[in-house]
Design a protein around this nucleic acid. Structure first.
Length: 571
DNA sequence: GCCGTTTTCGGCCCGACTGTTTTCAGTCG
């Protein structure tokens, strides 16, 4: 049983309770629990079976504990089954539609028997929604649009897509006269691995000018709303972008507010309330007389509630407020701390550039070392190398080192971990490499115990330095394979194997919360791009973002070390 | 349903916008 399945059950309970009009705070408890469980590294089923106590997890109390135990034991949750009897499960899907909340979903079901997206669409097309209380023709139109949107399957976007458009829009809007500031906020600013939309904040003397420019952007498909303070557009690829124009004096409060996360904001506001303050997107106010105290910068907002500045990547209500209060915020790693890149591919296998071209680009990025790590033979589609071919390739690397100065090219390989946990190449050739990455590219469907055993066997091989993309997931495309990550991490710690944060924007593997757990267990990390072209070496920033979201400091990451120290660590 | 250096009971963030309304409910972030 995966944690995600347990979290999904709690989310469904929350959705149904919402539709039934239950106590909103009870609903929030379920949603909070679902979020917390989704962030856990440790598998709850294993924890329960090992006699651990889920109630030690914040937001999990007696009732949730009992349900978790029940779900782990029976695969089901009786409370949810009871709820489903009264409210058809199809209704929760309707909640995913833009503009539809619990009240309208209930109304649609009670009055028209709508219990699916299909039926909703038919009812709307037949003009049967406009007669319902609180609905009219416009609502009907909006719902039809939402159905279309839903069908298009446009949900979340990888962070890298956000970068493409945030950058383009900043350049596009930046030269509008009167624009003083532009800041993308939201999950993008928190460097969340996926984003639902893009929020851009601006200070501009004449807001209508920047709004006009914004809604005329070349990639616009629809203008959803256009006003003096807020406009929304949808791009051709489905991404919604909001632009808000704000005042100087409340800019910091707004930036904090629109950066979120929602859970972080709630926690900050609760804290403010206890201090007799009120925090909103307009500033920090004294509660008793609404006197405005501050709000021009984020630093001021944090100071007003007695906290140092909390970096956006940490604002997930994962303990950052307590840490800030105790002066124990981590000194997060920066891109500038990175001294080398320890995974990349060349034309020898499935890369686009030569060894030298990769090294030159890395040198331009300011690195002092790179490891060339082409695939081993098992990865046939990539033209993986056998022992002979790798031996030749290593000679090529030696040669390339003679043709470039100012950067050291390390000899490496990404060797496949075969189904039984043995490696795809003989130890003898692996020993000639400075950097050996072990990774899984096949047989993703093993049972958890078998996969765990397989990977740990590879970790125990003294030739392996780094476990690459440890969970095999592809964001929005492929779930991680089933593996007991905590056991893998412990094995890595015990055998001095480094765990990778793969910076490829489709992977980001380990993910943030898991990297944090690994570090807490004493593991070292490597942040590597897995670049298949010279240009892709620039993706390092995505790995650094992930590390920052995982509370990682430079000292936890071996490719922030000078070459000698890094090599010493690998050996 | 969760939680507690004021509390084991009584709290639980805050405001804008939209569309439908004669004063507001619902949704969203």
């Amino acid at each position: 049983m995966e944690n995600k399945s347990i979290a999904d059950i709690f989310t469904e309970i929350a959705d149904i309770l919402d539709i039934q009009g239950e106590n909103p705070f009870r609903i929030r408890s379920y949603r909070n629990a679902a979020r917390t469980i989704g962030d856990l590294t440790e598998n709850l089923e294993n924890l329960v079976k090992a006699g651990g106590n889920p109630e030690e997890i914040p937001g999990i109390g007696k009732s949730m504990h009992e349900k978790i135990v029940e779900i782990v034991k029976t695969g089901k949750c009786q409370s949810l089954e009871e709820l489903k009897k009264k409210t058809p499960p199809g209704l929760t899907e309707l909640l995913r539609l833009d503009g539809l909340g619990p009240k309208k979903v209930k109304l649609l079901y009670d009055e028209l028997g709508v219990d699916s997206v299909d039926r909703l669409e038919k009812a709307a097309q037949a003009g049967r929604l406009r007669n319902l209380a609180g609905m009219g023709e416009k609502t009907e139109e909006k719902i039809l649009k939402s159905v279309e949107q839903f069908r298009a399957g446009i949900g979340r976007f990888k962070l890298s897509i956000g970068f493409t458009y945030a950058g383009a829009l900043e350049r596009y809007l930046g030269d509008v006269p009167g624009v003083k500031r532009l800041d993308p906020a939201g999950s993008f600013r928190r460097r969340s691995e996926t984003i639902g939309d893009l929020d851009i904040l601006a200070i501009c003397a004449q807001s209508s000018k920047v709004m006009d420019r914004f809604t005329a952007y070349g990639e616009v498909k629809d203008v959803i709303a256009k006003g003096e303070t807020k406009s929304s557009i949808r791009l051709r690829n489905g991404l919604q972008v909001d632009l808000r124009v704000l005042d100087d004096e409340s800019y910091g409060a707004a930036l904090h507010y629109f950066t979120g996360s929602k859970a972080h904001n709630v926690a900050i506001r609760e804290r403010a309330k206890e201090m007799g303050l009120k925090v909103s997107e307009y500033g920090v106010f004294r509660a008793r007389d609404e006197k405005r105290l501050t709000g021009a910068s984020e630093e001021e907002v944090f100071r007003a509630v007695g906290l140092p500045f909390i970096p956006p990547e940490l604002r997930e209500d994962r303990g950052e407020i307590a840490a800030a209060e105790e002066g124990k915020l981590p000194r997060l790693i920066d891109l500038a701390d990175i001294r080398g890149d320890l995974q990349m591919h060349t034309v020898a296998t499935d890369g686009k550039n030569s060894i030298l071209e990769m090294a030159k680009k890395a040198k331009d990025l300011g690195y002092s070392y790179v490891a060339i790590t082409d695939h081993s033979q098992a990865v046939r589609v990539a033209g993986g190398l056998n022992e002979k071919a790798l031996a030749r390739h290593l000679k090529e690397i030696d040669k390339a080192n003679g043709e470039i100065s100012g950067i050291r090219i390390l000899k490496g390989v990404e060797v496949d971990i075969l189904g039984d946990g043995t490696l795809d190449l003989k130890d003898q050739i692996l020993k000639e490499c400075d950097v050996v990455l072990g990774s899984v590219h096949s047989r993703f469907n093993l049972e958890e115990a078998e996969m765990t055993k397989r990977i740990i066997r590879a970790i125990k091989n003294p030739c392996v330095h780094i476990l690459a993309h440890p969970t095999g997931r592809l964001i929005l495309e492929r779930e991680p394979y089933r593996v007991n990550l905590k056991e893998v991490m412990q094995a890595a710690v015990d055998h001095g194997v480094v765990l990778e944060i793969n910076a490829y924007p489709d992977r980001l593997d380990l993910r943030d919360a898991d990297a944090r757990m690994a570090r807490d267990m004493g593991a070292r990390l490597a942040i590597s791009t897995d670049a298949h072209s010279a240009l892709q070496l620039e993706m390092m920033k995505f790995g650094v973002f992930t590390a920052r979201r995982g509370w990682i400091e430079a000292k936890d990451v071996i490719n922030t070390y000078p070459l000698d120290q890094m090599l010493k660590f690998l050996r």
